[in-house]
Design a protein around this nucleic acid. Structure first.
Length: 258
DNA sequence: AGGGTGACAGCGT
DNA sequence: TACGCTGCCACCC
């Protein structure tokens, strides 16, 4: 605690805690302990990101410019302090996060306790979108149990506390265009390419069917990818495919209703 | 034909 | 409250 080489975020933190303590009538150390979360840095496709840890797991991930910048943003968003993790307090979690950000399929515990029920449902759905695949906002809305809420889903994505870990960059528009991204639409396209999704394969015809089965899929559905080129029928919408006699795939569940 | 555009419904915050 | 990483349709060339 009394290291001579006090880092700047910690110094700021102590100063603030020292201001708060007398107001609350609480010892400084207690204020510090009760209002401070830990963070660590990790490498990701977005570059260096900082990762804050809550009670249940990762609470916040941000490709901030610096540790100071990250701490500021965290404080503004959660109303709590954050300082670099000491010793090995988050070592296990940091390892999982590093693996996940490297593209491995590891389950990273998340702390979404600050999210609304709707946000939690949406984030949970999006977490399940596999690498190499994309799904439209309207699909996420339907899967989350609120079929009309595709725009509200966009709002949740815009405020995703844990980008990359909850892969909001895999949520695209229903017309096959990639849509916006909190860190820029170009970054979204780059991320998707890095995962094997070429924007061209969905643009204009995000749905694909085959007469051999009579089924229509999202173009990036693992089953759609197996369709032989000469059996491949491209569609701009599920509706047009259904009108042509195809029924929705039971694996990727394209939204059939108007 | 099919890509672009504008209006507006619709949802949660 | 008004707003937004949308969807859908009408309408344009």
């Amino acid at each position: 605690m009394n290291e001579p080489s006090v880092e700047r975020p910690i110094l700021l933190l102590r100063e603030t805690a020292a201001r708060i303590a007398p107001v609350r009538g609480t010892p400084v150390d207690e204020v510090l302990a009760g209002a401070t979360d830990s963070f660590f840095a990790a490498e990701s496709p977005l570059g260096t990101v900082y990762v804050a840890v809550g009670q249940e797991g990762v609470r916040y991930l941000d490709p901030a410019d610096s540790e100071e910048d990250f701490a500021r943003r965290y404080r503004r968003r959660f109303g709590r302090f954050v300082s670099p993790a000491q010793g090995d307090e988050v070592a296990g979690l940091a390892e999982k996060v590093a693996s996940a950000l490297a593209g491995e399929r590891v389950d990273v515990p998340l702390d979404l306790s600050r999210a609304t029920p709707f946000q939690r449902r949406v984030l949970h759905v999006v977490k399940g979108i596999a690498r190499g695949e994309v799904r439209p906002y309207v699909w996420v809305a339907r899967e989350a149990g609120t079929p009309g809420a595709s725009r509200a889903v966009g709002n949740v994505m815009a405020n995703n506390p844990v980008p990359l870990l909850v892969p909001c960059h895999r949520v695209v528009r229903n017309d096959g265009s990639t849509g916006s991204y909190a860190f820029g639409s170009g970054e979204k396209v780059r991320l998707l390419r890095g995962e094997g999704v070429e924007p061209e394969e969905i643009s204009g015809s995000p749905y694909v069917a085959t007469p051999t089965t009579g089924i229509v899929c999202h173009a990036t559905c693992r089953n759609a990818r197996r369709i032989q080129p000469y059996n491949r029928r491209a569609f701009r919408s599920v509706r047009s495919a259904v009108e042509a006699g195809y029924r929705p795939c039971k694996v990727c569940r394209p939204v059939a209703a108007a």
